[in-house]
Amino acid sequence: MSSPAPSIPILRYSTEDLPPEARYEAWLARDWPRSERVYHTAPTEPFNVLMESASLGQTLFVRSEITAMTWERRSEDIRKSDFHPIIVNMMVRGTAQGDLDGRHLFEPDGTYHFHDLARPSLHGSTASLTYSLFVPRDLAAVWFPPLDRLHGLLVAGEAAAAVMELAERLWRMLPELTPQSVARFERSFLELLAVGVEMAAPGASARTTVEDALRVAAIAAIDQNLGLARASACELCRALNVSSDQLAAAFRADCGVRSYILTRRLEEARSALIGLKRKEPIGDIAHRLGFSDAAHLSRAFRQRFGMSPRAYRQLHGDAVAESQAAS
């Protein structure tokens, strides 16, 4: 008589049984999905979480119920990490909104978006129920090329409904599934997600052009070698051995490489101003990010965001203080 096929392991984690004041710190200390910090987070209401996860083969499937939070993926975290999957976040209940490396995100329930952990982001979410799929970068490059279009890409309508229904059915069936059967769900996910990408980004060619490849290489040079303080068109041309005309063509959609670098610097400055500690002096932020001085940063910041860095920091600090007082 043959033995029954082994079921897949399901990892469950909850802070429900912990004292409310200990829940967030316990969750932060959890060594998952990596020992390094993936996001910088801050609760915006009393914290609680329930998570279940299972490997589908090459991908990781996660169901999460979590209270309202802010989530920040910083450039320095990306440079120090080798954990750069594409995360597909499916919003069953709740909303999320923010800035994903220059692309505005508003994700209502019934939709999903792609989140590239190799690129910076800053967003907030309400209390939510989500399904997520962690897709290794090399696998995502096969199914959803080019990867450059994915960060913040939102999929809605019937394409989203099909993926959400599959996620719900998978979660209900997980205790009964074997490694062989769960791999079929993985392929079904990838097939449906690929359809969603093509519907959400119509006309986007899966062929990577010379300009696309150069833009990706230039961004990698900024993030991994030059850093925002040293980044400039001249330095990038020297590092990549290309002409200024070639570099300009690669960043035409960004209104030029200088515009792209300025946007990245301002987004990084905004993240530093509203980071969890919020203690770095504005002059130090300006120097670290390549502005000539605090006044230079202030002028550029006011032009982009409509207020000074100091006022922006104070506004965010007041919001956090009000949230903490309410809890």
Rank of each mutant, 00 (worst) to 15 (best):
A96G: 14
H115I: 05
M91I: 09
D99G: 01
D138E: 12
P85S: 06
K80E: 15
D77C: 07
N89Q: 11
R93A: 12
R103F: 04
P85F: 05
G98T: 08
K80V: 03
R79G: 11
D82F: 08
D116S: 10
E76N: 13
F83Y: 15
T95M: 07
E72Y: 02
L139A: 04
A127H: 09
P120Q: 10
R93E: 14
G102T: 08
S121W: 00
G98S: 07
R74Y: 06
A96K: 07
R137C: 03
A118C: 06
V92W: 06
H84E: 06
I87E: 11
R137D: 05
T111A: 15
K80W: 02
D109T: 13
P108Y: 04
V142E: 13
L100P: 05
V142T: 13
L129E: 14
H123R: 06
P136M: 07
A141S: 14
K80H: 14
H123I: 01
A96W: 00
Q97F: 09
R73I: 11
I78H: 06
D109L: 02
F114G: 01
A141P: 00
A96F: 00
D116Q: 03
S121Y: 01
L139N: 02
F106S: 14
D99F: 02
I87M: 10
Q97I: 00
E107S: 15
L117P: 02
G102I: 04
F134E: 07
P136L: 07
R119T: 00
F114L: 01
L133N: 09
T126G: 09
L133G: 07
S121E: 04
R119G: 00
S81W: 13
T111S: 15
F114E: 01
L129S: 14
I87K: 07
G110W: 10
T130A: 10
I86C: 00
P108Q: 05
E72C: 15
S75W: 11
L139V: 09
R103D: 03
Y131R: 07
V135I: 15
L122T: 10
A140S: 05
F83M: 08
N89F: 03
L122Q: 13
G110R: 04
D138K: 02
Y131K: 01
T130P: 00
T126L: 05
D109W: 08
G124I: 06
H115K: 02
A118L: 07
F106P: 00
F106C: 08
P120E: 10
D101N: 14
